[in-house]
Design a protein around this nucleic acid. Structure first.
Length: 538
RNA sequence: GCCCUCGUAGCUUAAUGGAUAAAGCAGGACUCUUCUAAGGUCUUGAUGGGGGUUCGAUUCCCUCCGAGGGCACCA
């Protein structure tokens, strides 16, 4: 990647300066992709300038420092080839802007072309487990689940595409002894109201619970609900999992029991004065607000205990990284599970991402969305109403921490002119053009020529950003950057399309044809990673 | 009361501490004899209030105001 290479070279130059900047300062070094300020831009001279002024006997301003950096970089043959001297400019308070040479841009295009097919190796050999959705088997998925679902799916795709070995996992809270299963059973038997929804009643109607205890009825109903949810997730949402992990299996396999034994053997559990026979794990010594009960006074196990057993199981499978994507209502669990990891010394990294809830607006008034109240908006209804592509885009173009306002009225208006159609339309357009040029294999010789056209060059630059975007997301998990990128890429193509004719009288503009093809493939890959279809005609 | 998020244009959202705060929708004005006008061009319009750190703050810190979520021997 060019920005990566550039960063390395600039750091080398900076470290070679006298006096050398503090490491702290180097952390503020930026290499940014830009449009109005060069293809790449850096603040190297600015972050340094205060040091220079303080330490050097000769006072220098950032622009002077920038000149010095450019002079050093110019001695580097590779840099020279990439940018060439007149293409490094000082601007503003001392930013250095780099303009790629056309040759370098063409080379980069060819790299992207190949990588779109083969993938990257940013996360090569990393084993990562991603657990997401994990909706309770007590009801259908609501729109809040959509965030974790689409985010987790796209992030998994991007990790895989970056060379990691991914396990997508779904945890099923089907422990037979849990209160929620018992409550579900009561509802099944007509003895309770918990989790009662229209759909649940429909399912109950088709089943026979006669003669069952609440516990049994609940377990049976939960398995039915789970089956329904799984079909929905795999079918309508198009989200696939490698592992559907049952909480109950942890009990059946003795994993939970074993966890208690480990904790007991290590003398990690304790009773509390005046708090009965309950056994506590001292999570407060590891950052949690208070200690947590793992074995209740009556000897039964808490959810936290099975969760420890579950995470212990995940880590025992040898992942470099274990990622949990939880809803905002679980944020209070983050500290305790992190504490459990410290206490038990699991090897590897544990990351927990919290997806903020989706709030519902009706006629401008915010309404609550609670699974147990009647006021639920089901994800399935949303998908049926707007289509999976629109819903995925709508959910994926926002950062996870955004408190998303879902206004049904606005969404309906929005869907007609949704950005996702714009992106898909650009893809379909290119396909249509390429169809006309079927049988023509552009050899790439026309590429340097077409770079002289600003709109073509701008498109090429946008395409060359693709590796940077993937790399960036693989490292900071900000999936929404990909929707932004896909839109910008589509927009760059639309502008290119206005300016450059690809199919000409009796022939083709070879450079433009190849550029369009690369744009198409990059666009298709971006959509694929997001789990959104790339239609060939619209 | 404590903890976690969030507050940016009329609306929905962007912006690893950087240059003129960026898009879409909505509003206004143009643009098809041309490979898909679901397109292109131009335009109106914003960082909740107050302090602080910094050469530079939407971003970091403090405080106030407002919104959502969580504070079980439920899951």
């Amino acid at each position: 990647m060019i920005s990566d290479f550039l960063r390395g070279e600039i750091e080398t130059v900076l470290k070679g300066l006298s006096p050398a900047p503090e490491t702290k300062k180097l952390k503020g070094l930026n290499i940014k992709l830009g449009e109005s300020f060069g293809d790449y831009t850096t603040n190297a001279a600015i972050i340094l300038s205060t040091d220079m002024i303080v330490y050097s006997s000769v006072v220098k301003n950032p622009r002077e420092v920038a000149e010095q950096i450019i002079a050093e970089l110019s001695k580097n043959e590779k840099i020279w080839k990439l940018f060439s001297k007149p293409k490094m400019e000082i601007a503003g308070p001392g930013f250095i802007n780099f303009y790629l040479s056309d040759e370098a841009l063409v080379d980069e295009l060819k790299v992207v072309r190949e990588r779109v097919g083969s993938g990257f190796d940013f996360l090569r050999a990393q084993k990562i487990n991603l657990e997401f959705i994990s909706a309770n088997p007590t009801g259908e998925l609501h729109i809040g689940h959509g965030r974790g679902a689409f985010y987790g799916d796209a992030l998994s795709n991007i990790f895989s595409f970056s060379g990691a070995k991914i396990t997508r996992e779904y945890y099923i809270n089907d422990s037979k002894d849990s209160n929620q299963i018992v409550e579900l059973g009561k509802t099944a038997l007509g003895l309770g109201e918990q989790y009662k929804t229209f759909k649940l009643l429909e399912i109950i109607k088709e089943m026979d619970f006669s003669g069952m205890e609440p516990k049994e009825a609940g377990a049976l109903l939960a398995s039915k609900v789970q089956e329904y949810n799984r079909n929905f997730i795999e079918g309508k949402l198009g989200v696939k999992f490698d592992e559907w992990f049952s909480e109950n299996s942890l009990y059946e396999s003795g994993r939970v029991e074993k966890t208690v034994k480990i904790l007991t053997d290590k003398k990690l559990l304790h009773k509390k004065e005046g708090e009965g026979e309950a056994l506590w794990l001292p999570t407060s010594e590891y950052g949690d607000d208070e200690d947590r009960v793992v074995v209740r006074s009556d000897g039964t196990y808490t959810y936290f205990l099975s969760d420890i057993a579950y995470h212990g199981d995940k880590f025992s499978r040898g992942y470099d990284k274990v990622i949990d994507i939880w809803g905002a209502d679980h944020h209070g669990h983050v500290k305790r599970i992190q504490a459990a990891k410290e206490i038990l010394g699991w090897k590897g990294e544990l990351k927990v991402f919290i997806t903020q809830l989706v709030s519902l607006k009706e006629n401008g008034v915010s309404a609550k969305m609670s699974k147990r109240a009647g006021n639920v908006v089901l994800l399935e209804d949303l998908v049926d109403e707007f289509g999976i592509d629109v819903v995925r885009w709508f959910f994926s173009d926002k950062s996870l921490s955004t408190h998303m306002d879902f206004d049904m009225v606005l969404a309906k208006e929005h869907s007609a002119k949704n950005p996702v159609f714009y992106v898909q339309y650009a893809h379909a357009r290119i396909c249509s053009i390429l169809e006309k040029a079927k049988g023509v294999t552009p050899d790439g010789s026309g590429l340097p020529d077409i770079m002289k056209e600003p709109a073509a060059r701008a498109l090429a630059v946008k395409i060359s950003e693709f590796p940077e975007i993937v790399f960036s997301i693989a490292n900071d998990y900000q999936v929404h950057k990909l929707t932004t990128y896909a839109y910008e890429l589509a927009s760059s193509f639309a502008q290119f399309y206005e300016k450059v004719r690809i199919v000409e009288d009796g022939g083709y503009n070879q450079g433009a044809l190849l550029l369009a093809e690369i744009a198409r493939n990059t666009l298709a890959k971006s959509l694929e990673l997001l789990g959104i279809s790339a239609p060939e005609s619209m």
